[in-house]
Each structure stands twice: as structure tokens, then as C-alpha cells.
Design a protein around this nucleic acid. Sequence first.
DNA 1: GTAGTACCTTTTTTT
DNA 2: AAGGTACTAC
Length: 738
Amino acid sequence: MFTDSDELLEGLNDAQKQAVLHEDGPLLILAGAGSGKTRVITRRILRLMQIGIRPYNILAITFTNKAAGEMRKRVDSLAPGHRVQISTFHSLGVRLLRQYADRLGLNKDFSIYDQSDRSRLTKIAIEDSGLNPERFTPDTVLNAISRAKNQLLSPVKYAQKALDFFSQSVAQVYPFYEKRLKESNALDFDDLLYWPALALRNDPEMRSDLDARFRYVMIDEYQDTNLAQYAIAHGLSQDYPNLCVVGDPDQSIYKFRGSDIRNILDFERDFPNAKVLTLSENYRSTKAILSAADALISHNTQRKPKVLISMQEIGAPVNQITFETGADEADGVARRIQKQVNEGKWTYKDIAIFVRMNALTRSLENAFSRYRVPYQIVKGLAFFDRKEIRDLLSYLRLLVNPCDNISFMRAVNEPARGIGKVSLDHLKNYAEPREIGLLSAAGNVNKIAEIKGKAASGLKDFAILMKDLGEMLEHPPHEVIAKTLDASGYREMLRLSTNPEDQERLANIEELVSAARQFKAEEGEPTLAGFLENIALASDTDAHDADKNSVSVMTLHAAKGLEFPVVYMLAMEQGILPHDRSLENDEDLQEERRLAFVGITRAMHELNLCNARMRDFRGSVMFTAPSMFLSQLPEREIKQQEEGPTTKMSAMLQGPTQSSMTQGWKTGSKKAVPIAPLPARDGNYSEGMIVNHQNYGKGMITEVSGNGALKRLKIRFQTAGERSFIADKVQLEILRSS
DNA sequence: GTAGTACCTTTTTTT
DNA sequence: AAGGTACTAC
């Protein structure tokens, strides 16, 4: 029909062939890094179609939309026109929730709330619950709620399990959070998995329909699934247990988001008759790189031991380069890259730079523009997080979903319409008991006696504006956006501004219009709702352009699934990788090691592991110790290099602080230690000390936590209660040591 | 009600 | 180092 069997198996090794040829029943593919798993999944899809399975009955789940798009393209190139369902768990969730909206009591036009929307919502829910908002930051509570949803715990169930004070507090907020979501006809990211998972669990008819629809399910990156995703996978694989999962336990790096490595480790227990295949031949990396990766990961205890066999040559040793400062590191890397490219060894797009944290990309930008190295930061300061974009998207979301109160709050007074907090409070007081949205209340503003003058006319105007724009909903997205920009006065506001930043915002907004235009070109039936959904579900890596000839800069998390001939991993320092917050807990530390492993195994030919002795971090310069992971690499494969100071900043620091530097270095402290002010203004603080603070007076130190610039003190004052301080920043007179 | 100013947290990673 | 929040003056 499109290709023959031999073609599908061409160039595959034994294990890969077996995986492709597997037909019915559960299958676990343990696929080491670089073992060609994507290729295997793609070919297996084709093979299933070849033996007569209807494409309609095949579902493939990938980790990002980009991966889904690429897989779709590959399948399409060999079997054009076939509509296999290939998507992420989240997009699948949205699709199911829209399809079954009536059955689930949802309104099809729901908004999808991202992190920052959720944060605002949580803040409101905390207020609703009567909890002290000072005590609980929205993000902490939100994290707990998010974890609860990933565990499929409803507010009631969560409350039953809440034993400690914090959980009990969260349990009070959670129902209000849900109520507020519903009121706005919104779902959060976790809902996109939570509701489908619960539906599959509780609605037998829906479950069996979907199971029969998706008879062959394939899931990539299975090591990073959470309980909700697990429940979806299993719900779809009861009557037709043709579940094929692919993953590598050593690459599980999303625990903070609810991923449970046990899902893959226990697959054979869940499906006792599962076939297990191991792909251990690595086609990507040189032997030197792979042996470094292998040595490192073997320090993890929570794993299935496995061997990776490099099918490549030994290759050059792994470089371990130590710089003086973070600035030297950026400078040195830029210089090396420029040289490599000038010598014709590599082109820019062959090279990637990985960092543990987004904040670390900043120092690179300077150096790269100085050396004229073209680069793309995958994410950086995300486009869709910019104020102007969020403002505009709020208008659009409100158009599609007029109940969306979070979007209303954002859009209503941007540009300023004379509507302040007081008027909005009146508006809320009117809307809430009547169970109507804020936009609808704004339409009735003349019935609200408390709101008058500028605020009243502003709200009225806004309601009319939205009503008029609503007429355009059927037009292509870019037209709606352009019209919104004009009619709202948003564009005009920026155009008239004297602030140079606003000119950039103007440009960003135009970029959104062209993104919408492009969306129209790509989608057959472009709706505004579809455009918004696309944005909501986009991942950082989706923006990565592999064809563009530039160096790719990204976090280690974003690097998953990619490969590059040359890799630089920056800031391999204790406190950064492994991250400070993982040092106390062995499980977290193992995840950091997996993160390092993921980074290392992205490299094909050349791997450079960099660290600096000093790093500018959050305003202060700190000493850093090399990452413990560096000492867990095989010496034989590593080439150590020292690079002297090259930047002005570094030279300056070389001078007078030299002695203290060496001192700080030699103490061998595991974590970063600040250089200035030395060590702390009045020596080391310890618990029990009695101190004097110029504003709060006398108090006792009750807790010392963290290190370096992150060192914090909690002090209980005689009159001012307990407060916490950054040790470096606070001025204290020590009255009595403990 | 708004605009301007001072201060405080934030950043680990993200669909 | 930046953006949000709280406070103040108009």
C-alpha cells in the first residue's frame, strides 16, 4: 500500500526490528539515550497500518507539540493523508474535553489558564478561604494544588488526606480555587489531564468507547508521566491492551511536575504479560562521551542498571574547562565557538549550550554579541509572557469566553479607562451573588449605584467594545487581533508613549499579528479559539528552529530529545547543577544527576563541561565549588583545562580580594560562599544569638538557613514578632552570642 | 482614581 | 535586576 516490510526494517538492529514488528499486547521499550526510539515508534506506526490497522485506531503521545508535529510529518511522508492521532497528553486532553464537553458538564469555550493566571486565581481563592494571605504565598499553595490534581485528588479527597498544618490550609483553598475556575469557565493545565483521567475512571461507557477508538496506543518519554497520564494510558488500554510505552528511567527529569519514575519501573507489574525490549545500541555519541555519561549515571541507586554501547568511534576526550568567573566562561565559550566555526570545523547550528536555569543565559548574550556569534535562546524571556502580549491575549480570551474573569481583570483597564480597584470591587460585589461574569456585569453598570463618573462610563465603553469585537469572532484570528488593537486603543497607547520600551512592545504586538496570520496559513480552519489553544499548549522547544544557523541556548530540560554535534554545559557548579534545593534530599539529587546525564547524552562528537570559580548571582559575586558530578566522571576520558581571566570584571576581582578568594576556595565549602561583604558583616550568625536591629530592636535568632547569598536568618523580636532576613543584607549588632 | 515612588521578593526545572 | 505591591500625593 505505501511501503513494504523490508523498507520499514531497513537499517534497524535486532531489538529495533522486534519493536517495530510487535503487534498486539503490552510492550515496554527501554530505550537508552540515542538508541533511535523515535525512529522505532514512527516505523511501528507505519507497520501497524501496513498490517491493516486503521490509522484512526492508532494514538501516539509525544512529549511536546513539536515532537508530535515532526512525527506526524514523518508518518505523512511515508503514508500521505493518513490521519493517525499524534499529540501530547495535554492536546489530547483538550480534544477529549471539547468532544465530551456536554457529558462532563463543561462549556466548550473554556479558557486554558497557565501558571500566571493560576497564580492570580490562587490569590483570590486564598482570600475566599479566609486564610491569612501573608502566611501562604499563592505559588506555594498553587504547587500543592497542582500536585494534588496530578495525583487525581479532588478537593474532598485531598482534605481527607491532609494531615499536617500546611496541607490542611491548602485543603481549605483548593475548593475555592476550583469554584473560581468554574466561575470563569476555565481549566488549568492540570485539568487537561485530570478531567479526562477521572472520566476514564468513572464513566465506563466513555472509557470503553475511547478504548475501542484508540486500540493501539504508543507513549514516548514514558518515564516522565504522572499519575493522571498513567491513568489515561491505562484507561485506554483495557479492552485493547496494546499499550506500547517507550522511555528511559535514567532520563526522568520532571519529578517537580508530578512525574513518577515508578510508572516505567513498574510497567511489568502493571502488565504482567508485557513484552520488554531494551535498545542499548547508541548511534549518537562517541565512546568517550558515552562512557562519561555511563560513569555518572551509575552513581544513581534508583535505577535499572543498563549498558549503553556506543556504535561510534572513541572520539576526542570530554573537555572540562574551568574559568575564573561566569563572565570569563561566557566570553571563553563565545571565543571557542567563534574559533571552531572559523576553522570550518562546525557551523553554528551544530552547537548547543545547556544551562540549569534560564537566568544563566543572560551573561551569554553580551559575550555572543561581542564575538558576533549568532544564537537563539530557546525560551529566554518568553515571548508569550510579555506584558503586552498577555494583555492582548486577555482581550482575545475574553472574546471567546466572556465568563473569563481573570482575563477581564487584565484587559479592562489597559489602556487606562479610569477604572480602579474600588470600582472593580463594586463590580465584583454586583456580579458574584448574581452568578454572572464581570463582563456581563459591566454591561449592566448603570444598575450599579456605587459606580459612577469616569469608572461607570469606562466600564460601559469596555462592555460595548467587547460586544462589537464579538461580532468579528468568525473572522480569521489575525483580523480579530488587528481590530482589537485598534478598537481598544491599545496600539494607540503604545504609539503615543514616549517610553522607548513601548516601541518594542509595539513591535511585539505586530509580531503576534503575524503569528496569527501564519497560523491561518498553516491551519485549514483557523479559529480564534484554535489560535489561543495553540499558544496555551505551546512548549518552549516549539520555538526552536533547528535549521537556523545559530547556536542553540537552552535549559537542560528543554534539551531533552535533541542532539547536537557539539555541546557546552555551563555552570557545572555545586548549588547550580546539582541545584541548591536538591542537595538535602537524595531523590532530588539523583534527579539532578539524571539532568546532567540528559545533557551529556545530547552530545554527538564534542562535549565541554564548564565551570567558573566565581559567579555573579542575584547581585552578589559568589565562590563556587565544582559540581560533584564532575568528580564522578571517568578520569581517563576527561581532559582538564584551566582558563585564566579574560574579562575586565575578572581582572578587577583578581586584585585585592586574591587572598580571601583562595581562602574561600580552599575551605572546600560545598555551596557557594559570597566574597563581599566578607563573610558576613559581623561574623557568623548562629541560632540563639541575641541581636539588635535598628528598626525592630532587640531579638533572638531562631533559625539560620541556606548558605552564601541565600543565607537567611529568622529573628524573633521582643516587640516586632518574627521576621526573616537575608544574612548578607541585614545590619545587626550582636549583643550576645549564644 | 491615577501616577509616581519605595520596597520587597523572586528563580530551578514546565506541559 | 526586574516586576509586582503598598503607599502617598494630587
